[in-house]
Amino acid sequence: MAKKPDTKRRDFLQLSTISIGAVGTAAFIWPFIKSMSPAEDTLALGTTEVDVSEIEEGQSITVKWRGKPVFIRKRTKIEIEEAKSVNISDLKHPEQDVDRVKKEEWLVLVGVCTHLGCVPLGQKLTDTKGEYNGWYCPCHGSHYDTSGRIRKGPAPENLPVPPYSFLNETTIKIG
């Protein structure tokens, strides 16, 4: 009987040594892993103010926000109608057009294809805009509509809408 508690004591010592060693190793590794995450200056949410007074109806501009292109399009009446008339149950990523804009004529999108991160075409008047008159990603053939929603192709989601607000009638603050 005298030996049994001894065995348990050994087991306990062994187990606690291993656990403390494991916790110590993990605590040591963590700063290294964390150092690879975006740094504070990168994280500091950049904001971009854009003057949109020069944009004519039907035109688009591209601005850079957090290193990514942001599309700002002043939509025509027809484009707005097209975006609103879609039956959302037909969509791959169902979203109402009204939930994607603050003012009907202004569409603000992060211009990064949700498939593998290419920049879709459709910003210039001469660009191909895809089958739904919005944007077309040349990398793997995703088609977006006039609300930036995915309609055809491999992309899983709609073009995201960044956080933005209207400072006044002609200035948009992104971020």
């Binding site: 690879m36 995450s37 290193g67």
Partner: peptide
């Protein structure tokens, strides 16, 4: 951009993993 975006296809952790690998929101 395309290859690192492959990781964002992983459910739940994908997007975070991608940003961790890039150290930024985009390739930078």
């Amino acid at each position: 951009t395309v290859i690192t975006n492959l990781f964002s296809a992983i459910p739940v952790i994908g997007e975070g993993l991608k940003i961790w690998l890039l150290g930024d929101y985009t390739v930078g």
